[in-house]
Design a protein around this nucleic acid. Structure first.
Length: 334
DNA sequence: CCCTCTGTTCAC
DNA sequence: GTGAACAGAGG
C-alpha cells in the first residue's frame, strides 16, 4: 500500500488533471484539486453540521489523519521532545542562579522549536490519547502503539440529522464534559509548519491525504475502540480525571476488554467512534469522511471552471459534476 | 484482515 | 441538489 501511495504521489497530481482524484498526491501538493483557482467566495456553508466553519475552511481543529490507527503521527511535541537543557545552560544555571529553576520548565530552545504553550498540553495530549488506548499508562507515553483515533473537536455541533440510522453505542456517554481545549491534543500552535501535509509523520509515514488547507484535526478527534457497538462505553474514562496531576492513572485499573473478549465480538462492528457526535463507524475511512461534516472540510472541489462548489465527499462531488456539469464539462474521464 | 476508494442509497 | 452513511471492490 505504501508503495502504492508513493507511486500515486509521484505521477498523479498532474497526470489526471481531469480527474483530480489523487488524494494521495494531495498531501504533496498543497492544492489538491482546484483546477480553477479563482473561487473567492464560499460556495456555501453547511448550516447543519458545521456552524463555525462557515467563515472559512481553516478550522481550528487540525486533523492529521494518519492512516494507521496504531501508529499515529508522532506528535511534534514528541518529535521535538524537549531536549535536555544544554550543558552550558545547566552550568549557567547552576553557576548563576538555580533559583530560576530552569530545569523546571522546558529547555528554552525546545520551546522555540516546539511551540508548546504549556506542559499541560502535552499532558492532556497523552491523556486523551491514552485513555482510550487501552488504559495502559504506558501507552500514554507512546500513543502510537495504541490504535485509537479520537474525534474531539471543539465543535459541539451535534449531528444535524442526528444519527441517521444507528447510533448504537456511545450514545450514553456524555462527552460534553470534554472541554474543547483539552480536546485537541495537537493544536495548531503545535505545528507551525505548513498546514498541508501537516501530518507530522509525513516524512516517514505515508501520511496519505491531507487535502484540507488546514492541517487535520488529527486523530485526536477520533477514537477507535476495540469494543463492539454493544459494549457500554462506561469504561471510557474520558474526561474529568486529571490523573496527570497525581500520577495515579485512572486508566490503569480500568481494563478495557480482554483480547479474548474482543474475539467474541465481531470486529467489523463499529469501532470507530466520532467523539463529537458519538456516531460509530466500522471503518476509519468512514469516520474520517464523517469528520468532515463536523469540520466543514470540503476537500473536493468541483473542477468545473466557474463552479466553486466543494464537497466533503468525493463521490458527492462527482455526482454533482454529473448532474450539474454533465453537458458542459464532461471532463470526467470515466 | 484491514484499509481506502467508489458507487449507491437514503434523508433532507 | 446535496449531505451523509453503507456496502462492494480492490489493494
Amino acid at each position: 500500500m505504501a508503495m502504492h501511495l508513493a507511486s500515486m504521489v509521484h505521477g498523479s497530481a498532474r497526470d489526471r488533471e481531469g480527474q483530480y482524484q489523487t488524494q494521495h498526491s494531495q498531501l504533496q501538493h498543497a492544492n489538491y484539486y482546484q483546477p480553477q483557482p479563482p473561487q473567492p467566495k464560499r460556495q456555501y456553508s453547511t448550516p447543519t453540521s458545521a456552524p463555525q466553519h462557515s467563515q472559512a475552511q481553516p478550522h481550528t481543529l487540525d486533523y492529521q489523519y494518519q492512516r494507521h490507527p496504531q501508529s499515529p503521527p508522532s506528535p511534534p511535541v514528541e518529535d521535538q521532545k524537549p531536549s535536555l537543557p544544554s550543558i552550558s545552560s545547566l552550568l549557567h544555571i547552576a553557576d548563576a542562579d538555580k533559583a530560576t529553576s530552569e530545569s523546571g520548565n522546558q529547555s528554552p530552545r525546545s520551546q522555540q522549536s516546539s511551540p508548546q504553550p504549556q506542559p499541560q498540553t502535552h499532558h492532556q495530549e497523552n491523556l486523551s490519547q491514552s485513555f482510550r488506548s487501552t488504559g495502559s499508562p504506558s501507552a500514554a507515553s507512546n500513543h502510537s502503539a495504541s490504535g485509537s483515533y479520537y474525534l474531539g473537536q471543539p465543535l459541539n455541533s451535534m449531528e444535524p440529522h442526528s444519527q441517521r440510522q444507528h447510533a448504537p453505542i456511545a450514545q450514553g456517554v456524555k462527552r460534553d464534559t470534554m472541554p474543547p481545549q483539552s480536546m485537541s491534543p495537537y493544536n495548531p500552535p503545535t505545528y507551525v509548519q505548513s498546514p498541508y501535509s501537516a501530518s507530522p509523520g509525513a516524512s516517514s509515514v505515508t501520511s496519505y491525504y491531507s487535502p484540507e488547507p488546514q492541517s487535520y484535526p488529527n486523530l485526536g478527534m477520533y477514537s477507535q475502540r476495540p469494543l463492539p457497538s454493544n459494549f457500554q462505553p462506561q469504561t471510557m474514562p474520558l474526561p474529568l480525571p486529571s490523573p496527570s496531576a497525581n500520577g495515579s492513572n485512572p486508566w490503569q485499573h480500568h481494563h478495557y476488554i480482554s483480547a479474548s473478549s474482543q474475539s467474541a465480538f465481531p470486529q467489523s462492528q463499529d469501532r470507530y467512534i466520532c467523539s463529537t457526535c458519538n456516531k460509530a463507524f466500522s471503518r476509519p475511512s468512514s469516520l474520517r469522511i464523517h469528520s468532515h461534516s463536523h469540520t466543514g472540510e470540503k476537500p473536493y472541489k468541483c473542477p468545473q471552471p466557474g463552479c466553486g462548489k466543494a464537497f466533503s465527499v468525493r463521490s458527492n462531488m462527482k455526482r454533482h459534476e454529473r448532474g450539474c456539469h454533465a453537458s458542459s464539462g464532461a471532463t470526467m474521464t470515466a
